[in-house]
Simulated assay, not measured.
Amino acid sequence: MSTPTPPSAPDGERVRQLAGELWTAVADGDEYTATGIVLRALDDGIDPESVLLDVIAAVQGTVGEEWAANRISVAQEHAATSINERAVTALAQHSAARTPAHRGRITVACVDGEWHALPARLVAEVLKLRGWEVDYLGAPVPSPHLISHLHTTKADAVALSSSIATRLPTAHATITACQSVGVPVLVGGAAFGADGRYAKLLGAQAWARDARSAADRLAEAPLARPQADHRQTDDLPHLADQEYTMVARSADALVRTVFSGLQDARPALLAADETQRERTAEDLAHIVEFLATALYLDEDDLFTHFVTWTARILRARGVPGRALPLALDLLAHELRDFPRASRILRHGLEALTADRATAGTQA
């Protein structure tokens, strides 16, 4: 049987018009108008895959950009995402009878602890449109339940999604667990890096940039079956130094110590309201969590990307960024006997200095 050519995107101007209309409806919190736009596009003959990826997914990207720029609140971001999810459901129901399953069976799931389900849902719906039988398990999925499901269904492959890099240690365990029962794994999502570099580090059989490329990759050829004797520790030998384990286990104590140091160095924090103090503690917890993940992968860039992104988010919200490098200094002092952690934190401070210089030039 020949492989059909994937559907191409419709006329660019029409797509931009639809995406603009959908964004307006989503921004207004108008679920009925949003689903109506999607259904009318399908009735007009626009390919369902293009509506999913060139319209709905594009609007969801705008949602994230607007949140990062502080033009919409967290609540508005959640509401917009929920409307986009309902638009996907409307499309799926409209297109359910179009493509009978004839290729094979794929399980699509989010890594345990990952609550951003929409990217995985887009993959699942595109695969259905391409003729796969899909078991979409949603978010989050504990690894034991996923493995039990694989035993029952005999899936040809697993597609795992993760948007948050701090879930990568869990993703690694999940990938290895799937492989241990003979099921190959394709991964995708922002957590695995823009070029998929972390997918390779964690031993996945394949990586896809987005839902369309995931479907293309699965259509090319079956994923290679995993080696029966593969072990999780084979992928990351640097973990033998135990730095990741010690930092992860002492995360709460590190946050308390650094918070106390910030209060001593910046008395203004003592005068901050309770909400601001809670946000500061949350930011510190994220810093330690990303440091632990960078140690797990031995990837400094993961941490430097996070701290510079955090600095830009704080600037967009009008929050002074002076406390961020100080927090890294305090954390470096606490971890001065950890060579890899010290190196990663030093690179984080260097990246913040460069980012501040760039921001000052652009101001």
Rank of each mutant, 00 (worst) to 15 (best):
Y244C: 00
D329Q: 09
E282W: 11
Q205P: 07
S213K: 12
R317L: 10
E289N: 14
R279K: 14
A323C: 00
R312Q: 12
E274V: 14
T257E: 09
Q227D: 12
W309G: 12
L297E: 01
A240D: 12
F259W: 06
D301R: 15
V288G: 02
R217W: 01
A228D: 05
I313R: 04
S250G: 09
R322N: 10
L239G: 07
W309F: 10
W207P: 07
G321L: 02
D229M: 11
P226K: 14
A316C: 07
A214L: 11
T304L: 02
V288M: 04
D216T: 13
G261C: 00
A251S: 15
L284F: 12
G321W: 00
L326A: 09
T304N: 05
D216E: 13
L291W: 01
A272F: 09
L328C: 10
T310I: 01
T257K: 04
W309L: 08
P222Y: 06
V255S: 08
Q242W: 11
T308N: 06
T304Y: 05
I287W: 00
L330R: 13
W207C: 06
W207Q: 07
R266C: 00
L269V: 08
L331V: 04
H230W: 11
D301W: 01
L262A: 04
T233V: 11
L291E: 02
R312D: 12
A311W: 07
D264N: 13
L262V: 06
V258R: 05
R249V: 00
A224M: 07
A294K: 02
A271Y: 15
A332V: 10
R225A: 10
A240F: 01
H286G: 06
R212I: 10
E278W: 01
L262P: 02
E282K: 11
A224S: 12
F303D: 04
E299S: 15
F259Q: 12
V319E: 10
L314M: 14
P226S: 13
Q263G: 03
L328M: 09
T310V: 01
D210W: 13
V307R: 08
L324H: 04
L326N: 04
Y296I: 10
R277E: 00
E282P: 00
A221Y: 07
Q242N: 15
T304C: 04
F259L: 13
F306E: 07
V255C: 09
A285D: 11
R277S: 01
H333D: 15
I287V: 14
P267F: 03
A204K: 08
L218V: 11
H286F: 12
R249M: 09
A285Y: 05
L223A: 03
L254W: 08
L331A: 01
R279L: 15
T257S: 08
H238M: 03
A215F: 05
G203F: 07
T233W: 07
D300F: 02
A214H: 09
V288E: 02
A208C: 06
H333S: 13
D252L: 10
T310C: 09
R317G: 14
H305K: 03
A206R: 05
P267E: 04
D210L: 11
L328R: 12
L295V: 02
D273S: 08
E299W: 11
L262E: 02
D210R: 14
G321A: 09
E243D: 08
E299R: 15
H230S: 15
E278I: 03
R317A: 13
Q232S: 10
L302A: 00
A327V: 02
L269E: 00
L236S: 03
A253F: 03
A224N: 09
